[in-house]
Amino acid sequence: MQPNVKPANPNFSSGPCAKRPGYDVSQLDLSVLGRSHRAPIGKKALERACLDTAKILGLPEGYRVAVVPASDTGAMEMAMWSMLGERPVDVVYWESFGQGWATDITKQLKLKDVKILSADYGQLPDLTQVNCDHDVVFTWNGTTSGVKVANADWISAQRKGLTFCDATSAVFAQEMDWAKLDVITYSWQKVLGGEGGHGMLILSPRAVERLESYTPAWPLPKIFRMTSGGKLTEDLFLGATINTPSMLCVVDYLDALHWVESIGGVTATIERSKQNLATLADFIATRDWIDFLASDPTIRSNTSVCLSLKLSAEQVKQVIKLLEQQQVAYDIGAYRDAPAGLRIWCGATIENQDLQDLLPWLEWAYEQVK
């Protein structure tokens, strides 16, 4: 029978993601709107975005945080174009975005000494084959495949190369070994439910050393430049952005950071996401028509949860359409390059009760189209 209780918030998109519980745009501090981002009031807000991020995440001493253009993609491109080429590169990917970094490295930067380790959707490459004396580029959590790395044990603490980690759907939701990571990027619109268009770039002291000691063979666009006269532009990591940011998006991000602190910090957001995954796992364990794309639970994402159904691709589309028509789940189709299925966001801004209320609808929709 058709369920009669609907999720209070049907937004289960994997990006942009649902806003935090209790979000009210009218409660944002809008005093920075209409002011220059270079005025003291604007720069202070941007500096808070950088420093509060470092504090809440518990980044190691000496790690720097900057707000940069063009979302997580811009932050990753900025880092790769500025620092790669000094030594060989190992690229590890198992989904579309990681594959995109491999394409940029081999076909745009045209680096020659590159080793690519890849796996199909739902799987993880053999990480023991990574050479940490090389630079290593990888995605901590594959947003389009629902597969994450279990930990950073495969990264050497004595590495000679830098680790470039696309962490956009992992940060604030998964335990990350910051000391093993030299370049970390993410975007606001994932686990924190922030707005799009801005990226976050985190650099370790080793990454800063690379920037100050190595000059790439190719020209760098202005929005990629992080040094001047061979020295790091420190102001970039204190709120002096390269281009003009949306201050409305900045205060929205600050609101999300305040929410994280108010519920107990990053430990609490990680736990919320884990609980959401557990709710789905309990449901799936008792049904034979739905399963995780990632069969190994140790590498299963607790944010972008990818599911396969015992249905044809066309039938899966019908399920998605039915759920949207009933206004119980929006934007939950698998990524266009991934196998046909569902992708349900389980990050910290998703209320567990909404997931509980969604599950009977999943079963109802399946029964309608099978």
Results as ranks from 00 to 15, higher is better:
residue 3 P to T: 09
residue 4 N to R: 13
residue 5 V to N: 12
residue 6 K to Q: 12
residue 13 S to C: 14
residue 18 A to M: 04
residue 18 A to K: 05
residue 18 A to V: 08
residue 26 S to I: 00
residue 27 Q to C: 04
residue 31 S to H: 08
residue 36 S to L: 05
residue 38 R to H: 12
residue 40 P to W: 01
residue 43 K to D: 05
residue 44 K to Y: 00
residue 48 R to G: 00
residue 56 I to L: 15
residue 57 L to G: 06
residue 59 L to A: 07
residue 59 L to F: 12
residue 60 P to K: 12
residue 66 A to P: 04
residue 73 T to F: 14
residue 80 M to N: 05
residue 90 D to A: 13
residue 97 F to V: 13
residue 98 G to V: 04
residue 101 W to G: 05
residue 114 V to K: 13
residue 115 K to N: 14
residue 117 L to C: 01
residue 117 L to I: 01
residue 129 Q to K: 15
residue 132 C to Y: 06
residue 133 D to E: 14
residue 137 V to R: 00
residue 138 F to K: 07
residue 140 W to N: 05
residue 147 V to F: 12
residue 149 V to K: 04
residue 153 D to T: 10
residue 157 A to D: 12
residue 159 R to S: 08
residue 161 G to V: 07
residue 162 L to N: 01
residue 168 T to H: 15
residue 168 T to C: 15
residue 170 A to E: 01
residue 172 F to G: 07
residue 176 M to Q: 11
residue 178 W to E: 02
residue 179 A to P: 15
residue 180 K to P: 01
residue 182 D to T: 02
residue 184 I to Q: 04
residue 190 K to G: 05
residue 194 G to Q: 09
residue 195 E to I: 00
residue 199 G to L: 04
residue 200 M to D: 00
residue 200 M to H: 13
residue 205 P to I: 01
residue 216 P to Q: 05
residue 227 T to V: 14
residue 236 L to A: 11
residue 236 L to P: 00
residue 242 I to G: 09
residue 249 C to W: 09
residue 259 W to P: 10
residue 261 E to I: 03
residue 266 V to K: 12
residue 269 T to P: 10
residue 286 T to R: 12
residue 291 D to L: 02
residue 291 D to H: 09
residue 294 A to I: 01
residue 298 T to M: 11
residue 301 S to K: 02
residue 310 K to L: 08
residue 311 L to S: 07
residue 314 E to N: 10
residue 317 K to Q: 12
residue 326 Q to K: 13
residue 329 A to D: 06
residue 337 D to E: 14
residue 337 D to A: 11
residue 340 A to P: 01
residue 342 L to E: 07
residue 345 W to Q: 13
residue 349 T to L: 12
residue 349 T to Q: 15
residue 360 P to V: 03
residue 365 A to H: 02
